[in-house]
Amino acid sequence: MKELSLNILDVAENSVKAKATLTEILLEETEDTLTLEIRDNGTGMDEKTVKSVTDPFYTTRTTRKVGMGVPLLKLAAEQTDGSFSVESSVGEENHGTTVTAVFNKNHLDFTPLGDVVSSITTLVQGHPDTDFYFSHRKGENEVTLDTRELREVLGDVPLNSYEVIKWIEEYLKEQYSSDF
């Protein structure tokens, strides 16, 4: 992947497929590191499955035999001497999965974050009936989006209406230009 934002788009799709009603995408930056957390309240995975998701030859799909999404994100983190972990729970009350990747931003092999706004709007466009919470923090500054808030204002207007997608895009871009 040319941009980390593409890995984010790709791995967040797994949350939607796991029937998450809320997927949180959290980015936190320090001088030297970028931490990405993708947290969902989907069905979760048992211990055995959690161990196999970083194996490129594991996939739930039947159209092909490989599943590269999670391994590619793991690789992107580890090639910067960062770290990667997956935690999951299938409990009745608290089910869901959290994927955490830590990157060393100053490492030669750090993949730039790229157009994260585009990844967020693409997720909402493709999955208007599930909710996303996005937060990108750097020091005191924060860019956020919570589709639950938008849904409350919009009523029955679908989140993937062109006007709404454009609004989200502008809303995020404005925050990036003033706070970052």
Binding site: E149, L150, V153, L154, G155, V157, S161, E163, V164, W167, E170, Y171, E174
Partner: peptide, 13 residues
Amino acid sequence: KSLAELQAIREKM
């Protein structure tokens, strides 16, 4: 951009 604008989109839609 404000949530009020979304309200306007809702009316329009």
